[in-house]
Design a protein around this nucleic acid. Structure first.
Lengths: 149, 149
DNA sequence: TATTGTTATACTCTATAACTATA
DNA sequence: TATAGTTATAGAGTATAACAATA
């Protein structure tokens, strides 16, 4: 008998004991649904985050944005090109240093942010529907306390 | 004044309100550290998971392994090649159906799994060091309850 | 010399689609 | 016709390395 019964459910007990395994599965669900939610707004997960950081930190440079997003400067170039092309942010100049840009959201960027923020809240309401308000807050706070590398 | 003060910390309040943002950051930390932990064992995150599933579901087929791992069958081929080359699993034949394989761990695979399981437990102990045992269990259970797409 | 932004390139992970051999 | 496994290819996301302009 070398055949695994086709009607027997596959188990993953070995893996379910790990926090990381459950985190990966949960994150992939979040990522997939969030991508679908942001796509009609012309945003990706990373450009949504970039828009948020720029909005909250006006006149931030690309290098500092890279730090905030935990990606390389080279990646930020594409990201900022994307947001600038969509007229959601602009590359202002810095007096006294012609190397760097001062990134700021445009009016359209502000509007887009508010729209996206609402959409993402709705997305989370759906995805975390089985969790109470308190449980969602607990989950968020526990995730925040995971050691950063 | 168009310059963002270099000494002022960048804030991410807009994003921190979302569970998904914190989940992404936490997951990237987990993934990076886990990759480092598994590398010396000759495993990647996915091959670790595959080894666990095969061990727990002896004689599973590649198609059913794909389902369990939530990846495509084409991806499983490479994964199984990898584990078979390392002599951690073997492709057994199924009597009555020459299309499919019956995947099973080898002795070396069993040993490797136990070694990896210990290493991953140590990795999680380090990463979730700021969480109590109860909090880790809570985190794991909350993640498990996120809606699957 | 160091920093900012840029470009070109490569790597990892995964999906899609077309194929083969079996059923 | 349908299924299991395979192959080739492509895409998303990100990193690495070398470069020009400026400090």
């Amino acid at each position: 008998m070398t055949k695994c019964d086709k009607d027997t459910a596959i188990t993953d007990q070995n893996l379910r004991q790990f926090v990381g395994y459950n985190m990966k599965r949960a994150f992939l669900s979040v990522r997939e649904d969030l991508a679908n939610v942001l796509e009609p707004l012309g945003l990706r997960m990373t450009s949504f985050s970039a828009l948020a950081i720029i909005r909250e930190n006006p006149d931030i440079s690309q290098s500092r944005l890279a730090e905030a997003l935990h990606i390389e400067r080279s990646g930020v170039v594409v990201l900022v090109d994307e947001l600038e092309s969509a007229d959601l942010i602009e590359r202002g100049r810095v007096e006294g240093d012609r190397r760097q840009y001062a990134l700021r959201t445009t009016e359209a960027g502000e509007t887009k942010w508010k729209e996206a923020e609402r959409a993402v809240h709705a997305h989370e309401d759906a995805l975390f529907h089985d969790l109470s308000t308190e449980e969602r807050a607990t989950l968020r706070d526990l995730l925040r306390r995971v050691r950063r590398t």
